[in-house]
Each structure stands twice: as structure tokens, then as C-alpha cells.
Computed example of a mutant assay.
Amino acid sequence: MKALTTVILVTIATLLTGCLSGREFVSVEEKFSKGQTATGFHLVERGETLFSIAWRYGIDYRELASANSIASPYVIYPGQKIDIRNVSKRSRPPVVATVENPSKPLPKSQRPAKPPAKTSHNPPKNNDNTAETDWKWPVNGRLIGHFSTKKPVNKGIDIAGALGESVLAAAAGTVVYAGQGLRGYGNLVIVKHNDTYLSAYAHTSRILVSEQEVVKAGQKIAEIGSTGTDKVKLHFEIRRNGKPVDPLRYLPSRPG
């Protein structure tokens, strides 16, 4: 009986040690999402670029490069550790202490001077899109999914289309990612338009451009498909300084 008890205890200890130290017990979901952010770094896999990693975590590629001392053209290597935690810390706005309803007002000599009044000359409603004004629709299909920051979250828009239909670059730029390494996007193309804006074209059946290729607005870069999703459609995103924005604020209005 004593020998049996000893065997049981040794077996339990072995299992606990394996759970604590063995990587084989880490689920795929944890490995590719929560597991990476919890440790504060991302382990670069084959085919990834700095832009695709920044896209995955919703951060500005320039801040990610700066936090990891990676200079342009932002070359990274499989197995390299990319610090994510320091980027999120830098992104936090400074905390400003305020006092509401003070019991005793400050004397005039200690009151801060009022800032000069700002004059306005009818600024545009959307200052976000002034850096890139020549946006075009990537496909002409029916809109079937809107941008939403509430559940269910949608970081872009979804457009219906026929399998194999042309996907066009929404604006001129340089392809910074072309592959299928981002889970949930299928075959994906990311285009950098300038230092502020990037756009993405997901679920394509075929990618027709390569990384570092310069594309023109309206140029065919892929074909509509259903990779990474359950229906044939194009998922289209625009990101400003790494953050998703509503593409409908930038795309031209459609007739009717």
C-alpha cells in the first residue's frame, strides 16, 4: 500500500511539473493571442513583417520600431523577440492632476494665464483624411458589414463580391505585407500609403503583388475569396497611426 501511494505521488508531481514547464501544454489560442501579450513580447515567425505585427496588436509601426531599436527599412528575423509591452506604455497619455471645486480660489497672482483664443476659419469636419485624399473603393460590391467598436467588433467594413473578382488598391502606396500569417484574415495584403495611413485587404483568394512593390490607386492587387472566413467577401480596413478607423469616413460617397 505504501509503495502504491508513493507511485501515485510521483505521477502527480510529474504531471504538475510538465504543466508548469512544458510548452506542449500551451494551446494554439494562447500561443497566438493572450500568451504573447502576457509575456510582453512577440516571437517573430517566418513570413511576418514589422507592419503585420503592429497590425496584429493595433499599434503604430513606428512606435514598435522605436521601442525595439529597429531602423528603416524595418528588417526582422524569425525567432526575434519584439517588445510589445514598452510600446503600450509609451502610448498611454500623461496623467494630469486636477482639482474640482476648490474650497479656496487661488489669488490672481498665482492663477495661470489664459491661453490666447483660437481663431477658426471653417476647418474641415474630418481632419483625419487630409493626409490622404485620393481614396477609392477597393471593390464595387454591396456593403454587408459596417465598422464597429462595440461587440461584435469590426475593425473595418465587409463588401460582398464574386469569387475571383478584382480587388483594387484604395490609394497609391507600397505593399508592406502580403501573406496569410495573421489569423482570421486569410490571404492578406497591407499597403502603406504614407507615415500616417495603411490599408488592408483580407480573405482574398489570390494575392497578385509582393512586398515592397509600389502600387497605384486603382491597381489590381488581389482577387476576392473566402480564405479565413465563411463566405466570399472582401474585408477592408484603414488604420491611422496604427488604430482602426471607419473606412466610410474616407471613401467617396457612392451614387444612390
Rank of each mutant, 00 (worst) to 15 (best):
Y61G: 00
N101F: 14
T119I: 14
R56W: 06
K118C: 00
E48P: 07
P73T: 13
E63Y: 05
P102D: 10
L106R: 11
S109W: 08
R56Q: 11
L106Y: 12
R62G: 00
R46M: 07
T119Y: 08
Q80R: 05
A71F: 05
I59G: 01
V96Y: 09
P107C: 08
G47T: 09
R111W: 09
S52G: 08
P102C: 13
T119V: 15
S69Y: 06
A117I: 14
K31T: 09
Q36P: 04
S103K: 15
G79Q: 02
V96A: 09
A117S: 15
A65Y: 03
I70N: 00
A65W: 01
S88C: 06
R56C: 03
N101L: 11
A65Q: 05
E45P: 04
I59R: 01
P105Q: 11
V99L: 15
T39M: 08
P112G: 10
P94I: 14
P115Y: 11
R62T: 06
S88L: 12
R85V: 02
L106S: 11
V96Q: 02
L43W: 00
P123V: 14
Q110V: 05
G35T: 05
V44M: 03
R56N: 08
A117F: 10
K31H: 07
L64A: 03
T98Q: 12
V28K: 11
R111C: 09
F41H: 12
F41I: 04
H42D: 06
K104W: 10
K89W: 11
S72M: 08
I70E: 01
P115R: 14
P78C: 02
A97D: 12
S88Y: 15
S72E: 13
S33C: 05
D60Y: 02
K104H: 12
P105V: 14
K34C: 01
Q80T: 07
P93E: 08
N122F: 13
F32H: 09
T39D: 05
K118H: 03
I76K: 05
Y61D: 00
R85N: 09
L64F: 04
V96R: 07
R85I: 08
G79E: 05
K31C: 02
K89V: 04
L106C: 06
T119F: 07
A71P: 03
S109K: 12
K34P: 00
L106W: 12
A54R: 03
Y61K: 01
G40Y: 02
A117D: 15
E48Y: 02
I53N: 02
Y77L: 06
R56S: 08
Y77N: 08
T49P: 01
V87E: 01
A38K: 11
A97W: 08
T119Q: 11
I53W: 03
L43Q: 04
S66V: 07
Q110C: 06
N86G: 07
L106K: 14
S103V: 10
K108V: 09
V75H: 12
Q110M: 14
W55N: 05
L64Q: 03
S120L: 15
N68P: 03
P105L: 15
